[in-house]
Simulated assay, not measured.
Amino acid sequence: MSVTDLTTPLTSPSGAASGPGTPPSASVARRRIPRVGVMLATAWLVLLAIAALAAAVGLTVDPLANDYSVISQAPSLAHPFGTDNLGRDVFSRSLHGAAASAVVALVTVVVGGGIGILLGVWAGLRRGFADAVVGFLTDVTIALPSLIIVATIVTLTGPSLPTISLTIAGFAIPVFARLSRSATLAIATENYVIVARTLGASGWRILTREVLPSVLPIMMPFIMTTLATAIVAEGALSFLGFGLRPPEPSWGGLIAEGRTQLPVAPWVTLMPALLLCATILSINVLGEHSREAKR
């Protein structure tokens, strides 16, 4: 996981990059393009969430049901994404794979982000020995090969959504802690924080009421990045055989299963891969939008 480059071109007060010779119509067009992108990204994620929820409650075809009368059938009205070599509906399996990826991403943000941000804010406010210990632990953890360790843990404990989600979340904690600590060091010098200290506010009140509400908006772009990273990590683990065991569907597992069927049924790999790419792109668009909005 890495933080995106925060360098951006100079913009006019309206938010669009423009110069003395930029026509008004061009400036308006440049402002509309990001809005359209944000709307499309939001619409895609909402639609995917609704479809995945519908699949989770059983409103789609059973993703594990074999139908040998429609083996390797091309996309059609009955099977929008086609079927695989066992006659299973790729559309239904892809939606169930989306649910698995969503669980991993949300657990990573809620658990890893929650613990990491609280730890980083606490270290940034306390400083001294506490800050040194947190800094040492984050440096050591970030230096570890996280994907290899996650794969090892999953192999030893058995592949399951809780194991995969919590292990990936554990490696997100130090990154969140480091970034939130850096934000806290800047916020701690603001007048309202100094006034709260002078008036005798407790450390917990300063953390929760003064500093944390200011840190969370700063962390939003990285939270979006972490959502995308967690989805990619889960997909990579499943693709390499360390994720959910077949026939349980996951995007990475579906892509891996379809490799042997590419000559006769390319849609088995193509459709979940397109869903994965569109989801990651949409999350990144919203993350970029939140970063620009914060600026």
Rank of each mutant, 00 (worst) to 15 (best):
M1A: 11
T7Q: 15
T8R: 15
T11G: 02
S12Y: 11
G19V: 05
P20R: 07
T22S: 15
P23F: 00
P24A: 13
S25N: 08
S27A: 14
V36S: 09
G37P: 08
V38L: 08
M39V: 15
L40K: 04
T42N: 03
A43T: 13
L45M: 12
A55C: 08
A55P: 06
A56L: 14
A56S: 15
L59E: 10
V61N: 12
D62N: 15
P63C: 03
P63Q: 04
A65I: 02
D67H: 12
A74F: 07
H79Y: 12
H79I: 02
F81P: 05
T83R: 02
V90S: 02
S94N: 09
G97R: 04
A99F: 05
A102K: 03
A102W: 09
L106A: 13
V107M: 03
V110C: 09
G112V: 04
G114P: 08
L119K: 09
V121K: 11
L125P: 01
D139I: 10
T141V: 11
A143I: 02
A143S: 14
A151Y: 01
A151Q: 03
T163Y: 00
A169F: 02
F171C: 00
A177N: 05
R181C: 07
S182E: 10
S182N: 14
A183H: 14
T184Y: 03
I187K: 01
A188Q: 11
E190I: 02
Y192V: 08
I194K: 11
A196H: 11
L199V: 14
L199E: 12
S202M: 06
W204P: 00
R205E: 05
I206T: 06
T208G: 14
V215R: 13
P217A: 10
I218F: 04
I223P: 03
I223D: 05
M224G: 13
A228S: 14
A228P: 03
A230Q: 06
A230W: 06
A233G: 00
E234M: 10
G241A: 09
G241K: 06
G243I: 01
P246E: 06
P246R: 02
E248V: 12
G253F: 02
G253S: 09
G253Q: 07
G253T: 03
L254R: 03
I255K: 05
G258A: 07
T260W: 07
Q261H: 08
V264E: 09
P266A: 11
P266C: 12
T269C: 05
L270T: 14
L270M: 14
L274T: 06
C277K: 00
I280H: 04
N284T: 11
L286Q: 11
L286V: 10
R291Y: 12
E292G: 08
A293N: 11
K294W: 12
R295M: 11
